[in-house]
Write a protein that binds this DNA or RNA. Structure first.
Lengths: 142, 142
DNA sequence: TTTATTTAGTGGACTTTGTCCACTAAAAAT
DNA sequence: ATTTTTAGTGGACAAAGTCCACTAAATAAA
């Protein structure tokens, strides 16, 4: 394992951290924080999500999550109902309003990514995606 | 520009955000925050850095930076001296203690990255780095 | 089956992180 | 000479995140 390899990875981490930070910064004019949106994402993706699932998926503090859910519920973006299998658990779902907002945020993000790659030709775009998939595959487990 | 392309990039962004988040989480047992360490990094890299330079490099609020510098100076990790060319500006540098700490933090991070790729064989590691370099090259400007 | 333990979630109190704005002082522009 | 811009500081606050004690249900152990 060469030091050069590690330094190259760290350089990429800095580069990509900055890039994502930049992208996120612009999205933060929304009334919802990254964590809040990510919670909506988890609920939308899991369909019938439980708080404990989101907690481990996001590696987030449970009391913090509890507060986020409270806010989202207050804004009528999510609904909670008691689980039938487990009396302690609560099943979460996006409301119509929540789905609508989530879709808007998704569109905004997609536009932004679109802008990021708009100056690339089709071949470059395909190459970019291929590199990303390759990295994910290599690092997948662990 | 295909929607599939954009979604693939977003999937990578989520993946990499989580990965970096995980790496960072473990480093945050240090007495210094990511931003503070990044400030040290900028000072160390620039040699004779000015606050305004760090501000734009990190895209960070100037008052926030001012406070970070105050803390680092109080801990004798950085030194400030008035710029000779510009009476408003202050030239920053790491002290010996600062360099030592920064080196320790760097080593810890490198070890961590090492752990991340330790289960990969040499060929896989080289491929990983190559993909990262390719992505950086493609996205470099903008 | 009652008693202990684990799991799911809430809320109080707090720290850390980051932002906004008004300010001083020097430099540069008009 | 006066205005405007640039560099940095500090007060006051908001947002984000953590720690801990708690309730209540589910599961395991005696």
């Amino acid at each position: 394992m060469s030091i050069k390899t590690i330094q190259e990875i760290r350089a990429f981490n800095r580069f990509y951290t900055d890039l994502i930070g930049l992208l996120n910064k612009h999205l933060l004019n929304s009334a919802y924080s990254l964590s809040e949106v990510r919670v909506m994402y988890e609920i939308n993706t899991a369909r019938e999500a439980q708080a404990s699932h989101i907690m481990s998926a996001m590696d987030i503090d449970k009391s913090y999550l509890s507060r986020i859910l409270k806010k989202l519920e207050k804004d009528r973006l999510i609904a909670r109902k008691a689980s039938e299998q487990d009396g302690r658990a609560i099943v979460l779902s996006l409301t119509g309003k929540g789905e609508k907002l989530f879709k808007e945020l998704t569109n905004a993000t997609e536009d932004q990514i679109g802008g990021l790659i708009s100056h690339l030709n089709s071949k470059q775009q395909q190459a970019l995606v291929a590199h990303m998939q390759a990295i994910r595959k290599i690092l997948q487990d662990n």
